[in-house]
C-alpha cells in the first residue's frame, strides 16, 4: 500500500501502525505511554497526528495505517495539542527535576523543554498524594510525579506476567497501586518502563546523573540466558544497572539478580591479597610469595607422583579466555587431562 507522511509518499506493507511506519522512515513522533514491547493504548495522546479527511487528530501509536492515508505529524495545530497534553500533565507533576533521580533522562522533562513550556500554567487545589510502601523495597513510588501513562502496569502484566500493579481511584486522586504485592518478584520491569521519575531505584546509595555516569554494555554474570546489561559507573563505583529495548537477547528485560544483584562486587569482604595457610590459619602473602610457593609445590608433586596426581577445576563464572588458559595450563604445563568444571552441578 501507499501512504503519505509530511508530503513524502511511502510504499509499505499493510498492518503496521502510523507510528511504526513513521519511525522506520525517519519521522519523529513524540510518545510517552508507548513502548516497543507493550501493546499500544494511545493513553497519553502525545503521539497525535493529523490525517486528511478525519476531523479529529488520531493517536499514531495505535492507529493502523491504511492505503492512501495522508498524514501530517508536525503541524501548528498538532504542536498546540501536544503542548496542552503536557500542560495537563504538569498539573500533577511537580517541577522537581533538580532533586529527581531521572533528571537528564526523563521524557517529560525533554518534551516540556522542547515544546517551550516555561511553567506549570494550570493550578488545581489538591492535596498531594501520600507515599505508601511499594510492592518491593528495591523501588520507590513517587505518586505525585506519576503521569498515569500505565507503562509500569502494562510492563508488569505483559512482560513479567505478574499483574502486581493497577490504577486505583479516579481523577486527581488516581494513582498506581501494588494491588497484588504478593506476586511481585522485584524484577524491576516497572522501574525500567517508567518514562519519568515516578518509580526510582532504591537499592544503591550511590547516585549519578546520566551525563555524569559512564554506561558500559556488558553481559550479566548470573544465569545462562546472557542478558545484556548497561552498567552505570561514577568515579569507578557501580551505581546501577540498566538495559534498553533492542539490546541483546533480553530486549530490555532483566530479573532481580541482573538488575539489583551487583552489590557483592564492591563488598568489603572481597579478597584483596593472596593468603597462605600457616598454623591452622591464614596469613597474608605477596603475589610473588604465593605463586612461588604454589609453583614449587606443583613441581614437587608432578615429579614425585606424576602429572595425573594433579587436577584442576575451571569455572563457568570465568571468561572463555580464562577457561582456555586454565585448561591449556593443566594440559600443556602440568600434562594431564584432569580438568573439569561445574557443568554437572
Amino acid at each position: 500500500m501507499r501512504i503519505t507522511i509530511n508530503g513524502r509518499a511511502i510504499e509499505t506493507a499493510e498492518g503496521a501502525t502510523i507510528l511504526k511506519i513513521a519511525k522506520e522512515n525517519g519521522f519523529r513522533i513524540p510518545t510517552l505511554c508507548h513502548m516497543e514491547s507493550l501493546i499500544p493504548t494511545g493513553f497519553c495522546r502525545m503521539c497525535v497526528v493529523e490525517v486528511n479527511g478525519l476531523q479529529n487528530p488520531v493517536t499514531a501509536c495505535n492507529t493502523p495505517a491504511v492505503d492512501g492515508m495522508v498524514i501530517e505529524t508536525d503541524t501548528p495545530k498538532i504542536r498546540e495539542i501536544r503542548k496542552e497534553v503536557l500542560k495537563f500533565m504538569l498539573v500533577n507533576h511537580p517541577l522537581d527535576c533538580p532533586v529527581c533521580d531521572k533528571g537528564g533522562e526523563c521524557d517529560l522533562q525533554d518534551y516540556v523543554y522542547e515544546y517551550g513550556i516555561e511553567k506549570a500554567e494550570y493550578q488545581v487545589e489538591i492535596k498531594p498524594k501520600e507515599y505508601r510502601t511499594y510492592s518491593t523495597s528495591a523501588i520507590k513510588y513517587h505518586p505525585n510525579r506519576c503521569i498515569l501513562c500505565s507503562r509500569c502496569i502494562r510492563a508488569c502484566r505483559e512482560i513479567a506476567g505478574r499483574e502486581v500493579l493497577d490504577l486505583i481511584e479516579t481523577g486527581f486522586r488516581a494513582r498506581v497501586e501494588a494491588v497484588r504485592p504478593e506476586r511481585c518478584i522485584s524484577c524491576g520491569e516497572c522501574l525500567a518502563a517508567c518514562p519519568v521519575g515516578a518509580l526510582t531505584e532504591n537499592v544503591s546509595s550511590l547516585k549519578g546523573r546520566k551525563w555524569q555516569a559512564k554506561r558500559v554494555t556488558t553481559v550479566c554474570g548470573y544465569c545462562g540466558v546472557g542478558c545484556s546489561l548497561e552498567v552505570n559507573v561514577v568515579r569507578d563505583k557501580l551505581i546501577k544497572v540498566t538495559t534498553r529495548e533492542g539490546l541483546g537477547t533480553n530486549h530490555g528485560t532483566l530479573c532481580v539478580k541482573g538488575r539489583f544483584g551487583f552489590e557483592f562486587v564492591q563488598s568489603p569482604e572481597r579478597l584483596n591479597t593472596p593468603l597462605i595457610r600457616e598454623n591452622g590459619g591464614f596469613r597474608e602473602a605477596s603475589w610473588d610469595e604465593a605463586l612461588t610457593y604454589m609453583t614449587a609445590k606443583l613441581k614437587e608433586i608432578k615429579e614425585k607422583d606424576g602429572p595425573d596426581s594433579i587436577a584442576g577445576l575451571a569455572s563457568a563464572r570465568a571468561t572463555c579466555e580464562e577457561n582456555y588458559l586454565f585448561q591449556k595450563f593443566i594440559r600443556a604445563a602440568i600434562g594431564t587431562n584432569n580438568i573439569d568444571h561445574c557443568a554437572r552441578l
Partner: peptide
C-alpha cells in the same frame, strides 16, 4: 593457598550463553 581474583565487571573477555551466543564482557570498574 588462596589467590584473589577479579569479578566479571573488572575485566574484558567473552561469555557464551545457553543459546551458543558468544558475547563481549567489558571491564567496567
Amino acid at each position: 593457598v588462596v589467590l584473589p581474583s577479579r569479578s566479571f565487571l573488572e575485566k574484558d573477555g567473552t561469555f557464551v550463553n545457553t543459546e551458543r551466543m558468544v558475547q563481549r564482557v567489558r571491564k567496567v570498574i
